[in-house]
């Protein structure tokens, strides 16, 4: 058995693979952005406003009626895709049997690509009022 796979805090900084090391940093750096963006987003959508008030028309007319707010939400989407899908990469690598590992990782990255396209499309293409 080589270096332990887990430290007291979580996954120790990887030493064997450059890709794993970049993933390790990317998950942590994106977490700092999401700590602010995702928690502020949840507070805005549930505490400041109520889900009952946020119709598609309301989002178009109010929430997304400026390029800056759309860019902010798109940036949050990018941080979410990096953080969520690299996190799920770690989860899959932990539990998926090796014979289907590359297949499952390919499906994971394909799903990330689909969400990237859908999210980017609506942010850019939704008409301004």
């Amino acid at each position: 058995m080589s270096a332990p796979r887990y430290s007291l805090s979580g996954r120790p900084r990887p030493t064997g693979s450059t890709v794993d090391l970049y993933v390790w940093y990317a998950v942590r750096l994106s977490s700092l952005a999401l700590f602010v963006l995702a928690l502020a987003h949840f507070a805005m959508t549930h505490f400041v406003f109520d889900p009952a008030d946020q119709s598609a028309e309301w989002v178009r007319q109010t929430r997304w009626n400026s390029v800056a707010l759309r860019a902010l939400d798109w940036g949050m989407l990018m941080a979410v895709l990096v953080h969520g899908f690299l996190g799920m990469r770690t989860v899959l690598q932990d539990y998926v049997p090796s014979r289907v590992r590359s297949l499952s990782l390919g499906a994971l990255y394909l799903l990330a690509l689909i969400l990237f396209v859908l999210g980017t499309q609506v942010v850019i293409a939704l008409p301004f009022d």
Partner: peptide, 19 residues
């Protein structure tokens, strides 16, 4: 983390539906 990730899939799709 897995739970939030599952919701993110739904959430990106539901926001896409706005358009």
């Amino acid at each position: 983390g897995i739970g939030v990730w599952l919701f993110i899939i739904l959430h990106v799709i539901d926001i896409w539906l706005i358009g």
